[in-house]
């Protein structure tokens, strides 16, 4: 079932286990998102699959290692590989996270291997604006930057993450990738767990035109007293679906992606989640159009 013009674009994250499915199934989503680093090789089967997918679908490149908030520069070798991939795939969106990944251990530059949170301060905002400017200029494209889930927080922060991202976009021309599950995870881990309120507050703190993509995901329930780990191993939760409705109401027909990274389901299950997102978005957008028409 394909989108009509002006409807929201719906996509799924493509992982290795679904390579055959995407190439052999009827087209049921509008775009595919892949992790850029998984296609940094110079050739081989994975890149060939991505090129074939690109012939049928829009592709979004989602990077996970750039560490735009790092106090250390992003290595040129990393950016060169990303640029080569970008020129090959010509993605319709390029995204990264508002986190840091590069640091030093015993005098040696290391990569953290994870999306580590940053303190939301003006000092870090300046650092990240510089990094984003550099990367956008190097790639010749605008970035879409995602809010992250976290397991520690910094006492140094005095801006909310939403304020931080809004200012980042204002200064750099980048847009926001709103991950509603990440807001939910942080709400449980660091706030009172009132996900509805956390999502509402977050969404209302972002300018209406600032969001260029939405991520929806689910994660495993933690044991009592433990922090939630954002493992992308489950269907999207009811609270996140509710947050999605609010987001579509506020930001309009924003491309939306279902992320599922571990305990991968069968392809039809993933497609069903995508269809659910489409149904919700269509319902909201149709109601909005109707409301406009009768005013």
């Amino acid at each position: 079932m394909l989108v009509k013009n002006n409807d929201v674009l719906i996509g799924v994250g493509l992982r290795h286990a679904h390579f055959t499915d995407i190439l052999t199934s009827p087209k049921q989503v509008d775009f595919i998102e892949v992790h850029s680093e998984n296609f940094f090789g110079e050739g081989g089967a994975a890149l060939s699959v991505l090129n074939q997918v690109r012939e049928q679908y829009l592709v979004s490149l989602h990077s996970t290692s750039m560490g735009l908030g790092s106090l250390f520069d992003i290595p040129k070798s990393y950016l060169s590989r990303l640029k080569k991939l970008t020129e090959n795939i010509d993605p319709f969106l390029m995204s990264e996270h508002a986190c840091f990944t590069w640091g030093q251990q015993q005098g040696q530059l290391i990569h953290s291997g994870d999306l580590l949170p940053i303190a939301h301060t003006y000092e870090n905002l300046k650092v990240m604006c510089e990094q984003v400017d550099k990367v956008q200029s190097f790639l010749g494209r605008h970035l879409v930057i995602e809010n992250v889930s976290a397991y520690v927080k910094f006492d140094e922060s005095y801006l909310s993450e939403a304020e931080f991202l809004a200012k980042l976009c204002q200064h750099t021309g980048a847009k926001i990738l709103l991950d509603i599950n990440n807001i939910a995870v942080n709400s449980i881990n660091f706030e009172d767990g009132n996900i509805t309120k956390s999502v509402t507050d977050y969404i209302n703190a972002l300018p209406v035109t600032s969001v260029a993509q939405i991520h929806l995901a689910g994660c495993s329930k933690p044991q009592a007293g433990e922090l939630v780990v954002d493992d992308h191993a489950c269907p999207v939760s009811d609270e996140v679906w509710q947050g999605y409705q609010q987001a579509i109401k506020r930001f309009g027909a924003v491309p939306t992606l279902i992320e599922w990274d571990s305990d991968l389901p069968e392809w039809p299950v993933l497609i069903n989640e995508a269809q659910k997102a489409r149904d919700i978005a269509d319902a909201i957008l149709t109601r909005s159009s109707y409301a406009c028409a009768i005013q």
């Binding site: 790092s70 106090l71 840091f100 640091g103 030093q104 251990q105 290391i110 000092e123 520690v152």
Partner: peptide
């Protein structure tokens, strides 16, 4: 690197790695 070595990012990395 843009700031002093003892910034919050280094503190977090040290806590994870050490």
């Amino acid at each position: 690197m843009r700031a002093l070595f003892s910034n919050e990012q280094q503190r977090l990395l040290a806590a994870i790695w050490d």
